[in-house]
């Protein structure tokens, strides 16, 4: 852009996590989140995030910083970063997904949900239950009934492994 914009000082934002830690980031990094963008447009420079805990926020800021500097040349680098980013425990993933949902960061939301969906895909319902510790509260009769109602979906071979 114009040379005048380069000399301008970068606008900063302060994000405050649910456990009261404060983080200073550039506005251009923060506005990738729709929630933060809306607040910034209303004139906020201090953004309290009562639904996002420090642990998730650190990771998310890291993600936003990386994606803010996206160019053609670091495409591969970002891909590797994303891959590492989602390579974490389910508990982390769920915390991140709640935070990304609250912050409205659609690209992150898509990536996290895709990661979780990939773990459900191709698995038998029994394996999914074990992986996510889902407690089946159906009676065997109820279960049989649901299976019958949508028999098509339960045809074929499924992956029983828990990885």
């Amino acid at each position: 852009m114009a040379s005048t914009t380069e000399t301008k000082q970068k606008k900063m934002l302060i994000l405050k996590s649910a456990d009261n830690d404060e983080f200073e980031i550039e506005e251009s990094v923060g506005v990738q989140s729709e929630t933060i963008k809306n607040l910034v447009e209303d004139g906020f420079t201090f953004v309290p995030l009562p639904n996002v805990y420090t642990k998730a926020l650190i990771k998310i800021i890291d993600y936003l910083k990386k994606h803010a500097n996206k160019t053609d040349s670091n495409d591969e680098e970002i891909k590797t970063f994303d891959k590492d980013f989602v390579n974490t425990t389910f508990d982390d993933l769920f915390e991140l997904v709640s935070a990304a949902n609250y912050l409205h960061i659609s690209c992150l939301m898509n990536m996290l949900c895709q990661t979780i969906a990939d773990r459900i895909k191709d698995k038998s319902p029994e394996a999914v239950r074990k992986i996510f510790h889902i407690n089946c509260d159906y009676t065997p009769e109820e279960e049989a009934k649901i299976r019958k109602a949508n028999a098509q979906a339960f045809e074929g071979q499924f992956d029983e492994s828990l990885d």
């Binding site: 769920f94 709640s98 949900c113 999914v128 239950r129 509260d137 159906y138 649901i146």
Partner: peptide, 25 residues
């Protein structure tokens, strides 16, 4: 997780795959 997030996750599956989750609980 909230229902809308779960539906969003299911949105990344095919209809059949998503339909199978009805049996989880």
């Amino acid at each position: 997780l909230p229902d809308d997030v779960l539906s969003f996750i299911l949105g990344h599956l095919t209809v059949s795959e998503a339909a199978r989750t009805s049996i989880l609980s």
